[in-house]
Each structure stands twice: as structure tokens, then as C-alpha cells.
Design a protein around this nucleic acid. Structure first.
Length: 572
RNA sequence: GUCCCGGUAGUUCAAUGGAUAGAACAAAAGCCUUCUAAGCUUUGGAUCAAGGUUCGAUUCCUUGCCGGGAUACCA
């Protein structure tokens, strides 16, 4: 932790037995010191008692202690811990100067490696609910985190437009001769409407089990590209894709390439044939093609239905190859729900058996459930992205209007839109990525608490102060000595810890770490803001120093939010 | 049946094996002639159970109980 100031700390404490892999953390009580480190490991190396060793380290430090202008002022032993007392002036100077560096808080773990990230891989003819939204939010953040860490990221999408879900939807539309197709220009959101039809189709099929054979036949015709079906397919497929594109644009997704199942499925079928020839795959019950992965503890995987139709796996085999063929990348990452963890283990094993050795990773995020139970299309209780977005927008619009009567409609909408996106994204990112979410609409539309608004409000406050001060801050002329209270020290330490947070978030594929960091930093700031006056101050030098700190806080928050693709507003 | 994930305040979530388990919501009480009250302060409240490893366990291991997911023709 505290990577930003670590080099300066070690400069003060060379050759006293504290190795460079020693990590610093915050003491449980600020009165103990500014930073601390535990001596368990260090003492073990020298075969000493940790409590004794802590005292010894402190003694050594006092012996070699250098000038008062160093970052480290003092060491104090407290049981097996050593607490570090920092020089406020030096701390402020280092942090507030370093923050202007390029790619501040970033690192170069990626070393220019090219990585493809595939998300959210939706199915056409289906709804876009908050589960998909979680996928996009995590994907977006991962792109940001990897770019911040020196990777060259290629975001791509894979659209499943050729599976049995499409078959069900088209078959149902045809069977019911839905008149709305003819007057489709009347439908406002066709992508959403189609999702509704798909849900209806599912309900119907569940009730009328006898249509199963009919669907099998329909799928055969579909996969053989029966012109009669293709017309409806092309039309409706386009509705979904246009709808997705609009959503992606709103959410700040920027795919460099899009793969379609309809263009890949045949290639997948060929791979299945090859696997059969190579005797990696075998013929199973009813003529289905399967692959026995039991030696690897991965059960049996189905590669082709007994009807000859493909399954997801059929296409995914081809997709893996296509990815590396079309774009020269060093590795590929997939983001899907954790319920597909097992599926991806199977997929990767099959590719491995086939002799495909490119690096592929699967990242699973937890399901989004409703607080009152499971979300399922069949129960008809899915929370759609569009609906949630509108609900939040309405609420925020009213509130913003009340606060800024002087704003015109256009400005109100612009600001509310940014706030809405921020609230949505924060809500779906605030939990640990791999954990199941219990989603509560009431909580999501609450404007208080652990919420994006809290952070954006903090930024808006700083913006406001900067405007009102009329000052241009020149770091070279700041008297850093004036930043000497505990709250200021805490803020500086928070800022110094930013890069460690980035690393942690990426290492665990877990953007929630960064979300929490933004909130905690904002909280620390609001505490400071309420306790100390920044502008209303007798001493202009103090105002300048404090304002410089405020701007640094804003810079870090905005940088972190940018990674999460969350925008801020000047005023709110 | 087997495999994977989870179980922490009333609720939703935090806590690389480290000092006194943190937040938010909800509940109770306060703070706007003062830089945006979408804010701040204060109060009460929790580690599923039993073993084990360790100087030290919410964290690691074992067992049990509870919940979720996966487990060849669902997507």
C-alpha cells in the first residue's frame, strides 16, 4: 500500500533491517502514528521475538536518523508493530507534486500486451436486463483497469443471433401471426418488445410441451437458412442489434469488433467433424456428438444435438479460433455470469485437447437477483435496464429541477442523464464482482448513502470552491507546511494509496474495490470540508494550500471514475 | 448423488492470517444569518455451529446445518 510515498520512506530507512517488500498500512488508531508495519515476518527472518525486534528497529532508526526534512520523522514501537510518524510538509509536497505525473496511479504490469476482452455477449431476440448491465459495468471497468495498467485492450462483442432462443422467438411470431410485425414502425423500442415476445414464447412452450418436435424441425430449417424464415430473422435481428448499439453507446462501451454466431456456427460444426475424425469426440445417445471429459473431472460435454443442430459450445469452439485469427492479441478474456464457470472449463479443456494453446481466461460475475426472489423471464419479473434507467432518471430530474430552477430543460436533462448513468453503474459495481447481488429497487433509487451521487456531489463541491476562489493554483508557490492537521494528512495518505487500489482491483478482477475507494475518499473529504474552512479563511496562503489539496482529491476521484466509465458534473 | 460459490448488525455489503470486525440503509437525537444539507455529528446493534492449524482465525483445513449455481440435447 501507499506506493506513491514508499520510495521516499525507504530512502529514510535504509539498512536498518526493514526489507523493501515490507508493506505499510494504517494504524488502528491515528494517535499511534501515520503508518505502520508489522514485524512478524521480519523478526522471523532474524529469528527474533517480534516485540523485541520492533524495539530494535526503532533503536536502529534513531541511530541512523537523518535530517528533519526527511519524510519519516520518527519510528515508535508498539508491541510487535512499528508505527511511523511522517513529516506533514514533506508528505504534502511529495503527494501534491507527484499527482501531476502522467498516468498517475497507473502501472505497467501489462507491458504493452494486447488483450481482447469479450463482453457482454448478449443474445438477440432477448431482453436487456440488469444482469446484462452488470456485465457491461464490469467489462467497462476491466477495460479501464487494464489500460491503466499498461495493456493494449481490444474490447469485442459476440452476439448470439443463431441459437435456439432465436428459433423459439421466430417460431412463436410466425405461429401466432403476430399482427404487430406488420405495423412494427409503431413500436417505440423494438429490441425491448422482441424480448417480451421471447418471454411469451417461452411461457407458451412450457405450457404446450407437444410443440417440442415442431421446434426441432424449425431449428433445422433455420440452420439450413430457409429463405422463408430468413426474412423475419434479418428484420428482427436488426431490431435487437440496433437496440443493443444504443444501449452500448449510452453506457460508454466501445467495441472494436463484433462477432456473430450466425457467421461462425458452420465453422464450429466443421470443428466438431474434425474432433470426431480425430476421435477426440464420440457419438453418444441418439447420434449426438459428445466429448468425454470425465478423466479431467469435467463430465461429458455436448457438441452437437442428435438432431444435428449446434449448441453454444459448437460455435464457441470456432469463436476462440476466429478471435486470434482476426486480431493478433496475446490473450483473450471472456466475461459472463458465474453459472457458466463450468461450461468455460469444459470449453478450454476441449480447445486444449485439440491443440489450441492461446491464453484464454474466463471471468465470472455473480447473478443479479431481486431482493424479493429470483429474477426470471418465465416469471416475468426481470428488471429491465430501460425501466430502471427511466425510473432513476425521473426521480433525479425532479430533484435537480427543484435545486436549479434557473436551469433550462436541456441542461437539466444533460445533467440528469450523467447522474442517472453514474447511479446505475455504481449500483451494479459496488458489490464484489463474483458475488451474487440482491438487487433492491428502493435502495437503488435512494439518493443517500453508498451511492454515486455522494461522490459526484463531492466533486461538484470542489468545482464550486474552485470557481468561487478565482484562484489559479501554482504548486511551486504552495506552502506545504500549512497542511498540517490530521484530516489533511488522511487525505494525502488516501491519495498516496490510489495506485495500490488499482492493482488490487485488477488482480481480483473486482472493480468494487475502486468504487469503495472513491466513496471512502469522498467521505474523508466531506468530513474535512465540514471541519475546516477552505475559502473563508484569514490567510490566503492557507486557502491556496487547502485548495491545492482539494483539487488533488478531485483529480484522483475523477481519474478513478473515468476507469469505471462514470462521468462527473460541474454542478448538481 | 457429484462439483463450484456463499453464510458477518434488523437489511444490503466491507475487512492480502494481524492491534478495538468497518460502511450504507433502516431506527433515535442534533447541525443551514458560514465554501452546494444529494452534506456533517452523536447513539444503539453482528462473525451459522462444532472441532483443528497458528503467537494470533471473519479469513486457512475438516465435519455438520442452511442458501444459490452447475451437472449432454436450457441459454
Amino acid at each position: 500500500m501507499f506506493d506513491l510515498i514508499k520510495p521516499d520512506i525507504f530512502e529514510c530507512i535504509t539498512s536498518i533491517g526493514v526489507t523493501k517488500d515490507t508493506d505499510f498500512s494504517l494504524p488502528p488508531n491515528p494517535e499511534l502514528g501515520d503508518l505502520c508495519f508489522a514485524c512478524f515476518e521480519l523478526a522471523k527472518k532474524e529469528k527474533k521475538d517480534p516485540v523485541e525486534f520492533a524495539k530494535e528497529i526503532v533503536g536502529r532508526f534513531h541511530f541512523v536518523k537523518r535530517a528533519k526534512t526527511d519524510l519519516v520523522l520518527d519510528f515508535r514501537a508498539s508491541g510487535p508493530y512499528v508505527n511511523v510518524i511522517l513529516n506533514n510538509k514533506k508528505l504534502a509536497e511529495i503527494v501534491l507534486t507527484k499527482i501531476d505525473q502522467k498516468n498517475y496511479g497507473g502501472n505497467n504490469l501489462g507491458n504493452g500486451q494486447k488483450v481482447m476482452i469479450e463482453y457482454p455477449s448478449q443474445n438477440t431476440h432477448k431482453e436487456f436486463h440488469i444482469g446484462h448491465l452488470r456485465n457491461v459495468c464490469i467489462g467497462n471497468s476491466l477495460v479501464g483497469l487494464m489500460e491503466k495498467s499498461g495493456y493494449r485492450v481490444v474490447p469485442v462483442n459476440y452476439i448470439n443471433d443463431f441459437g435456439s432462443h432465436v428459433v423459439k422467438c421466430l417460431w412463436y411470431l410466425e405461429k401466432t401471426e403476430d399482427p404487430r410485425i406488420e405495423t412494427s414502425f409503431l413500436i417505440k423500442n423494438k429490441q425491448k418488445w422482441l424480448g417480451m415476445i421471447y418471454a411469451e414464447a417461452n411461457k407458451y412452450i412450457a405450457k404446450h410441451k407437444e410443440v417440442k418436435q415442431e421446434l426441432v424441425e424449425y431449428q433445422k430449417r433455420f440452420e439450413a437458412r430457409d429463405p422463408k424464415i430468413m426474412k423475419l430473422f434479418q428484420l428482427t435481428r436488426q431490431w435487437s442489434i440496433e437496440g443493443f448499439n444504443k444501449i452500448h453507446e449510452e453506457l460508454g462501451v466501445r467495441h472494436e469488433k463484433v462477432f456473430f454466431e450466425s457467421k461462425i456456427k458452420n465453422k464450429g460444426q466443421k470443428i466438431v467433424d474434425e474432433l470426431l475424425e480425430k476421435k477426440i469426440a464420440t457419438v453418444g445417445e441418439g447420434g449426438a456428438i459428445i466429448i468425454d471429459l470425465q478423466p479431467y473431472n469435467l463430465d461429458v460435454a455436448l457438441l452437437r444435438k442428435s438432431s444435428g443442430s449446434g449448441v453454444y459450445l459448437t460455435s464457441d469452439l470456432a469463436l476462440a479460433k476466429e478471435k486470434f485469427k482476426r486480431i493478433k492479441v496475446d490473450q483473450s478474456i471472456n466475461i459472463t455470469g458465474t453459472e457458466q464457470n463450468f461450461y468455460f472449463k469444459q470449453l478450454f479443456k476441449i480447445l486444449e485437447l485439440e491443440g489450441f494453446h492461446n491464453k484464454m481466461t474466463h471471468i465470472g460475475y455473480g447473478l443479479v437477483n431481486r431482493s424479493d426472489g429470483k429474477m426470471s423471464s418465465r416469471l416475468g419479473n426481470v428488471i429491465l435496464y430501460d425501466d430502471l434507467k427511466n425510473e432513476i432518471f425521473e426521480k433525479l430530474f425532479q430533484e435537480t429541477k427543484n435545486r436549479h430552477e434557473e436551469w433550462n430543460e436541456k441542461k437539466l436533462k444533460e445533467v440528469t442523464q450523467i447522474l442517472t448513468q453514474a447511479v446505475l453503474k455504481f449500483t451494479l459495481l459496488k458489490h464484489e464482482a463474483e458475488k451474487t447481488i440482491s438487487f433492491d429497487i428502493k435502495e437503488a433509487t435512494n439518493m443517500e448513502g453508498y451511492n454515486a451521487l455522494y461522490i459526484l456531489y463531492t466533486v461538484a463541491r470542489i468545482n464550486s470552491m474552485e470557481r468561487k476562489s478565482g484562484l489559479k493554483i501554482n504548486k511551486k508557490k504552495i506552502n506545504f507546511q500549512l497542511l498540517d492537521n490530521n484530516e489533511e494528512k488522511n487525505l494525502l495518505l488516501f491519495i498516496a494509496n490510489y495506485s495500490a487500489i488499482i492493482k488490487k482491483a485488477l488482480a481480483n478482477y473486482n472493480p468494487s474495490v475502486l468504487v469503495k475507494y472513491c466513496f471512502d475518499l469522498s467521505k474523508e473529504f466531506n468530513n474535512y470540508y465540514n471541519k475546516f474552512s477552505i475559502l473563508k479563511n484569514d490567510d490566503l496562503e492557507v486557502t491556496k494550500a487547502r485548495l491545492a489539496l482539494c483539487l488533488a482529491v478531485r483529480r484522483v476521484i475523477e481519474d478513478a471514475l473515468k476507469i469505471l466509465t462514470i462521468k462527473t458534473v460541474e454542478e448538481m
